[in-house]
Each structure stands twice: as C-alpha cells, then as structure tokens.
C-alpha cells in the first residue's frame, strides 16, 4: 500500500470524528481505496468510511490488506501531522506496522512514524442498498447545533420528516423543545440549502448522545444528509470529495 494525501487534514478529521465511537478497527485497503466499518461497543451505531482511490494522489494497493489500528494510538501519531502536511500511508504485504510520513508543504521537514498494527477480528455487517422514505440535506453546522441544543432538554430526539420540513423534537423534565427546518434554496450559497425529498412521512426517535457524537464529523463537510425510513436505522452521511464518505448508522429507539 502506498497512499498519498495532499493534506493530512482530511485523515486527521476523519479519525477525530470516529475515535470516540470505535476504538480498534480494520482499515481495509484494496485497489478501490481505504474502507472501514465498525460498530460501537454497545452495538447501537455503526460507522462506515470510504476513502476512494481517487482521494489519493497517487494510490497504489497491490493486494487486499486489513490494517488493524488502535485509533487512540493513531490519534497520537496524527497529532504530529500539521493539517497542511502531505500525508503518505505505506504498508508492506504482511505488515506488522503501518508507516505514516508527514511532509511540510515547503519540503524542509519530513516526519516518519511507524504505528504497530493489531489483529482485529471484526464483525462485518451487510448494509443493504436502501431506498429511504425521506432524505434531508442541511448545513452540517445547523444539525450539530440542533443536536447539542436538544441534548440539554432530553436524551432522545424524535425526528419527523414531511413535505413541509424536518422537525426535531425533544421532551424532557424541564419542558419540551422543537426545531423545524423548512426546504430552502439559498441562491447565493448552496451550502446553506435545506433540501428534503420524501416518498412517505417518517417519524423516528434516536439517542442524542450518539447523534452529537456523529457531529464530530461536522468539519469534514458543509452539508450533512439524513436518510430515514420507518423502522430502520438512520443514516447520517458526510460526503467528501471524490465520492469518499463518512457515514454513521444509528438504530432507532422503539416504542414501549
């Protein structure tokens, strides 16, 4: 494997966004890119990351290799990379370590780290291609704000999506709160758009603890996409350049 990123920033932010949800995971490398799928310890949420080969310049991976990595250790190593550094990830065929090289843009500093790998026997879940009943895209910062505000009211949020908009409702001991985002196209700045597409109305409840955790990915993308169908996990997607993505799946709370 040899994968070179123009800016370490992307990889630093991806790892930062998932390290509190999952501790040890395999980065599955093959000729299509670097993928990761892992459940949190309580098996309520799932993270799925894809960094496509096109994300890297260049990308080379001759055979499939899983790189079992302790994300806490990886975070320590990535602290040594400045956001603008060129990052190269390298590994041999049957690796004991993954090699990370950080180069300053002006090429007068090269840092090189070897991170020990672990054998991780990871369960892999099959996520079927799903036609979601409702898809809502919104500014990632707005979603983060809504989740953190409602977490102060309750540990759960009900998300209701209709043609009129998407509503987040929390009911707590101190009272209730709700936030509605209506469909909205900002001609000046499409990052501010709220776009809803719906085949049938959806109403589901989710844990805000998990949702606020997913929002650690906010810096990766201007927009976040929520995909919902009744009685299936919510998908929260941060789309990245070159068809790469960071997706979180969260099982709903179900009625008594």
């Amino acid at each position: 494997l040899e994968a070179r990123l123009e800016a370490a920033d992307l990889f630093k932010k991806v790892v930062e966004a998932i390290k509190d949800l999952v501790q040890h995971c395999n980065f599955d490398c093959n000729d299509s890119g670097i993928a990761l799928q892992a459940m949190d310890n309580s098996h309520v949420a799932l993270v799925s990351m894809m960094l496509t080969a096109d994300t890297f310049t260049p990308f080379r991976c001759d055979r499939n290799i899983p790189l079992g990595i302790d994300l806490t250790s990886l975070t320590k190593v990535l602290r040594a990379a400045q956001s603008s550094d060129i990052l190269t990830i390298k590994s041999e065929d049957a690796p004991d370590v993954v090699n990370l090289v950080f180069e300053g843009k002006d090429q007068d500093r090269i840092s090189e780290y070897d991170l020990k790998l672990m054998d991780i026997d990871q369960e892999h879940l099959g996520i079927p291609d799903t036609e979601y009943a409702a898809t809502a895209s919104m500014p990632a910062a707005d979603f983060k704000r809504i989740c953190s505000d409602l977490l102060l009211i309750s540990e759960a949020v009900s998300i209701e999506c209709t043609k009129e908009g998407i509503t987040f409702k929390a009911e707590g001991d101190i009272g209730n709160g709700s936030v509605t985002l209506r469909q909205h196209s900002d001609l000046e700045n499409s990052d501010k758009n709220v776009d809803i597409s719906l085949t049938e109305p959806v109403a589901l409840s989710f844990s805000l603890k998990y949702l606020t955790g997913f929002c650690k990915a906010t810096g990766l993308s201007n927009q976040v996409r929520l995909c919902l169908s009744n009685d299936v996990p919510l998908m929260v997607e941060y789309a990245l350049a070159n068809n790469s993505y960071l997706r979180f799946y969260l099982a709903p709370k179900i009625g008594d």
Binding site: A156, V232, P252
Partner: peptide, 14 residues
C-alpha cells in the same frame, strides 16, 4: 424515550 434497538437487529453479519 423508548427502548434502544441494536444495529444488529437490522443488519445481518456478513
């Protein structure tokens, strides 16, 4: 707030 479902209730191990 209801009972928290598990992700493996929806997606099978592959």
């Amino acid at each position: 707030g209801g009972r928290q479902a598990g992700i493996t209730n929806f997606y099978a191990r592959s």
